[in-house]
Design a protein around this nucleic acid. Structure first.
Lengths: 140, 140
DNA sequence: CTGTATCCTCTCAGATACTG
DNA sequence: CAGTATCTGAGAGGATACAG
């Protein structure tokens, strides 16, 4: 697979942004690092899967999500949905019928995040084989 | 904080990409989902921190990394570096001096990934306060 | 200096049963 | 249907000591 070259201009730009990110960090006294908070929140497998699925299926109910997001347990799905709702990514709508019906969909903010997530997923898809290849050769 | 609006065009585009991603998925028989593999590999806290640091400091030795990537243990740092090397993100160079010197730096592929990571981190930085705000209000 | 080996803790998540 | 409650196990990761 061909790896697209990162141009000099891109690298300079990256360096500038990194400097902005790292600039204020004091390694000797760092109760919590902003970058770290941010990465922790991005890096939850189930949350990202939930958001991607709600991107593809605009509205889903609890048990529909449970089927789509294969392998997730009641507990974790419930926890993550509450968290995603609390953070503003997901809207939860209750229809007080019998039996009760609850629908989930992305908010505008959720869609904004979805864009980033798709970009990342695309990148990963495109380079998956390259990584797998490397990994195989490295073992030898 | 102002959330930038996701345009209709962007949403349509996202839907198209999601369709491509989700299109081939059979929920009834899915030993492993490609999206999932991909997300798992993206979503390791220590790996992302290592890559971001190697983006900012072009070359780092083992113990330097250990100081910068605050809180990481020998074991985990060593594991992740081996993995990142094996996958092709990081180059490891040994100088057989006494005492031995080992240097780590990003490969071109690593820089390509770094670009994506920075974009994501920037997004997260920009929306951090919005999320924290939501979270506070949700508790009430 | 750059790791590896070992042990040990402790969280997270899966399974199951149950409730409004 | 949409979750909550409880229990349990696996496994990730921290601390420490040690090796090349």
């Amino acid at each position: 697979m061909q790896i697209e070259t990162v141009t000099e201009k891109q690298r300079v730009n990256a360096a500038r942004k990194l400097k902005k990110m790292f600039g204020g960090i004091d390694y000797t006294n760092m109760p919590h690092c902003p970058i770290r908070d941010v990465m922790a929140f991005v890096s939850d497998k189930w949350s990202t899967l939930i958001i991607l699925h709600l991107g593809y299926f605009p509205v889903l109910r609890f048990n529909e999500l449970k089927k789509k997001v294969f392998g997730v347990s009641n507990k974790v799905l419930s926890e993550r949905l509450k968290q995603l709702e609390g953070d503003g990514y997901v809207q939860r709508t209750v229809y007080p019928e019998v039996p009760i019906r609850v629908e989930y969909n992305l908010t505008d903010f959720g869609h904004s995040y979805l864009q980033k997530l798709i970009e990342l997923t695309e990148w990963a898809e495109n380079h998956k084989n390259y990584v797998i290849n490397n990994r195989e050769n490295f073992k030898k």
